[in-house]
Design a binder for these strands. Structure first.
Lengths: 326, 326
DNA sequence: TATTTATATGTTACCGATTTCACTTTCATA
DNA sequence: TATGAAAGTGAAATCGGTAACATATAAATA
């Protein structure tokens, strides 16, 4: 069933059928004739043919490090919800944090395939930036600031700063930090900088050295908490870059017979479900992950529609979750 | 830059360039000439044009209820990992458990767009089945058995049966159950049937009535645990259809001053991270979610390649996670 | 030597839509 | 009544590839 068949059955030209679907000039009788034939046959125009002709795929590429992660899952959820309200579809690519794959997908999407890309990488190399510069389709970065690029991201710095100040405000003085690799600008570098500045402003710049680096797993948080404790014996608070690390840290501390939160208070970030169900719940930061995805799509739609006044950078808010405070 | 430009620059016919990319007969010199031009220009054949001509999109549609869920996230992760090893891409559609949307996407994918579909719905209506019957592209169901359809699913029945027997084996006699809606064949009906048969075989068929229905949230588990307890006062064990429900239930019980697991032992299913970090961890069932996604893709690839001996139904295993047993 | 067979190549129709173009009809305006 | 604008129409070019077909050469076989 193609447009020629329909036009024949309806006794009109192919152009008329095309106009029927694209709101072109068409008389009421022909419109009705076509409508009937379309209804009977269940005909739907071929997307590929339309795409070839119009150069619009109505698909956007979504590149993420993984999908089975609470934070990224929410971002993707946000992306998809707005996306198909706008009649677009998502081509999902998972990179497993492999920069090579990121570039690969970026270039695969780049030339064709999709009308735009939402990129949620972690580490951006110079090659990334070069590729983004001369991308033929608009790209929006989600979850990270990148100079010169459209991006929506969280206020990682102030969130961690505030979180750390909460610790200091509770009289916790001897703080340690479990963070992510510094190459990860948002979760790694910015959050650690927030911690450093907070302890410095609190009068204890030397705490900035009480820092170890974990990956995003609970197991890694567990392991690195051991390293942190070996580094400095008498902590009374540990701030972590993510809830998963924090949960691992709590487990380790309790295994060592340390009472949490009485002896050592632990904070994560992300307000993951797993943090909320700990007993007692973790101190944490709520970031607006779904919103991040939603805004990313809106920015992209602005770029696609060549709408003026398009947003170039959006920094999202956050709030501290302190179970003891409620 | 199209194939005509390249052929002109390389001094060959368009067919030769096409053959260059599709391993057709081509002499070494022409191959080299084309290679050089392609390299210089960075030319890549247009996917849409290829698709229009060949009727192969090398995309498959993935329909899921949501993505920010540990179990579904893992399934999607599994799907994607195998998929792009096979050179396919995934068009992701999220239905938010709306059967209408499922049908909509199914029909959108159906006629065209994708070479195949992986459907991970929860409730299948007669209309679903009708639609699946006369789908023009192969469909694989993930996470649920559906007669006459290619499907990969978990052994929900035996898992819950075994899990319940573990409770009985521990001397827990007065059991309650928090389940999902019976329209959800896998997580709702099958798991509940496993529970019922286990308590019946254990000599306590009357426990089957100690059942309430929750949705998949922690909050719902919390609420429904209250209803369950109001229903029968003196439980010593609660089996749940998912870990999220179980975590909610544990929270409720502890709020009521009930010691968990001493007074009431609680089990979930799914082996979610949040279950493992509870203190002490939940009894739960490990299902192979990633594997489920991987197998679904393999089945689909078999169907696509018209390979004989294609798998039609795959039932996956499971194991019980009993923290007290380790 | 005659005849397959494999390799190599270009021409051209085709996939299924959109859109430009040229043209006709209708209708309001000067 | 002429005139221009707006509405309506179909033919045909176009998007960028693939594949069927015709054809030619070289190598292998009978």
């Amino acid at each position: 069933m193609n447009i020629a068949d329909i036009s024949r059955m309806a006794g009109v030209s192919r152009a008329a059928v095309s106009r029927y679907f694209n709101n072109g000039y068409i008389s009421e009788e022909k419109r009705e004739a076509i409508r009937r034939v379309v209804e009977e046959t269940g005909y739907r125009p071929s997307v590929q043919a339309q795409t070839l002709r119009t150069k619009k795929t109505r698909m956007i590429g979504v590149i993420v490090p993984k999908v089975a992660s609470e934070s990224i899952g929410k971002v993707v959820e946000g992306i998809l919800s707005v996306l198909n309200k706008s009649g677009y579809q998502a081509l999902l690519a998972v990179t497993q944090n492999d920069p090579q794959k990121e570039l690969e997908y970026l270039s695969a999407f780049h030339g064709k395939q999709v009308d735009g890309v939402i990129l949620s990488g972690t580490v951006f190399t110079p090659e990334h930036k070069r590729m983004l510069k001369n991308s033929s389709v608009p790209v929006v970065i989600a979850g990270q600031y990148l100079a010169g690029q459209c991006a929506v991201y969280h206020d990682d710095y102030h969130a961690t700063y505030d979180l750390t100040r909460v610790f200091l405000g509770k009289g916790r003085r001897k703080l340690g930090y479990i963070g992510a690799i510094p190459q990860d600008k948002a979760v790694g570098a910015e959050r650690y900088r927030g911690f450093c500045d907070a302890v410095r402003d609190g009068g204890h710049p030397e705490f900035a050295a009480n820092c170890v680096t974990a990956d995003f797993s609970v197991a890694s948080g567990h392991e690195k908490a051991g390293e942190l404790l070996a580094k400095c014996k008498d902590l009374d608070g540990v701030v972590c870059a993510t809830d998963s690390m924090a949960v691992g840290a709590v487990q380790y501390l309790r295994e060592q017979g340390i009472r949490v939160p009485e002896q050592i208070l632990v904070a994560g970030q992300g307000d993951y479900e797993m943090a909320r169900v700990m007993g007692p719940p973790l101190v944490t930061v709520h970031y607006y992950y779904e919103k991040c995805g939603e805004v990313a799509v809106q920015m992209l739609m602005d770029l696609l529609g060549h709408r003026e006044g398009a947003m170039k950078e959006v920094k999202l808010g956050y709030y501290i979750v302190d179970p003891m405070q409620v």
